[in-house]
Computed example of a mutant assay.
Amino acid sequence: MNIENLSKEQRILRVLRKVLANIVKDATPAPGEASPLSESTIHDIRDLFGLISEREKELAEEAGMNRNEKPYYTDEPPNSRVVQLHRPPKDKKPN
C-alpha cells in the first residue's frame, strides 16, 4: 500500500504504532533484569496497540481495502495459473 493513498488518520495511526513499538523496544530490559515499566503501564500499552489495530481495521474496511494483502516482488512467479478449460475452435477445412 502506497502511503500517499492513506488518509491523514491512517498515517497518524501508522506513525503512532511505530513510535509506540520503538518505545517498547527501547524500554525492554535485558533477560533477568526488572522492567522499568509498571504492570499498569504495560497493560495500557497493550490496550493502546489493540485500539490502534481496531481503528486501522475499521478504516481499511471503510476504504474497501484488504488488510491481508502482503507485499510482493514484481519478478515473483505468480501463485496461480490460467488453466484452459475448453479447446479453441478448430479451423474448418474447405469442402
Rank of each mutant, 00 (worst) to 15 (best):
M1P: 06
M1F: 07
N2C: 02
N2G: 01
I3S: 09
E4N: 11
N5Y: 02
S7I: 04
K8R: 14
E9D: 13
E9F: 02
E9Q: 14
E9S: 07
R11D: 02
I12A: 10
I12C: 02
V15G: 04
L16H: 08
L16W: 05
L16K: 15
K18H: 06
K18G: 02
K18A: 13
V19C: 04
V19E: 15
V19H: 11
L20K: 13
L20R: 12
A21E: 12
A21N: 12
N22W: 04
N22V: 02
N22C: 03
N22S: 12
I23C: 09
V24E: 09
V24R: 15
V24W: 06
D26W: 04
A27K: 14
A27V: 06
T28V: 07
T28M: 10
T28G: 06
T28Y: 07
T28I: 06
A30F: 08
P31L: 08
P31V: 10
P31K: 15
P31Q: 12
A34Q: 15
A34S: 15
S35G: 09
S35F: 10
L37C: 05
S38K: 15
S38Y: 03
S38L: 09
S38F: 02
S38D: 13
E39A: 15
E39K: 15
E39T: 13
S40A: 14
S40I: 10
I42Q: 15
H43D: 10
H43V: 03
D44V: 01
D44G: 08
D44W: 05
D44Y: 04
I45L: 14
I45F: 12
I45S: 02
I45R: 10
R46F: 00
G50M: 08
I52A: 06
S53L: 08
E54S: 12
R55L: 02
E58P: 01
E58S: 12
L59H: 10
L59Q: 09
L59W: 11
A60V: 05
E61A: 12
E62S: 08
E62L: 10
E62I: 03
A63F: 07
A63V: 07
G64V: 06
G64I: 06
G64L: 10
N66E: 09
N66V: 04
R67G: 02
R67A: 05
R67L: 14
E69Q: 13
E69K: 14
E69A: 10
K70Q: 12
K70C: 01
P71T: 03
P71I: 03
P71K: 06
Y73I: 00
Y73C: 00
Y73N: 01
D75N: 09
D75I: 01
E76A: 03
E76Y: 01
E76L: 01
P77L: 04
P77C: 00
S80G: 04
S80H: 07
S80E: 09
S80W: 02
S80A: 08
R81V: 09
R81H: 03
V82K: 14
V82P: 02
V82C: 05
V83Y: 08
V83L: 12
R87Q: 13
P88V: 01
K92N: 03
K92E: 11
K93V: 09
K93I: 06
P94R: 11
P94F: 04
P94W: 01
N95D: 13
N95L: 11
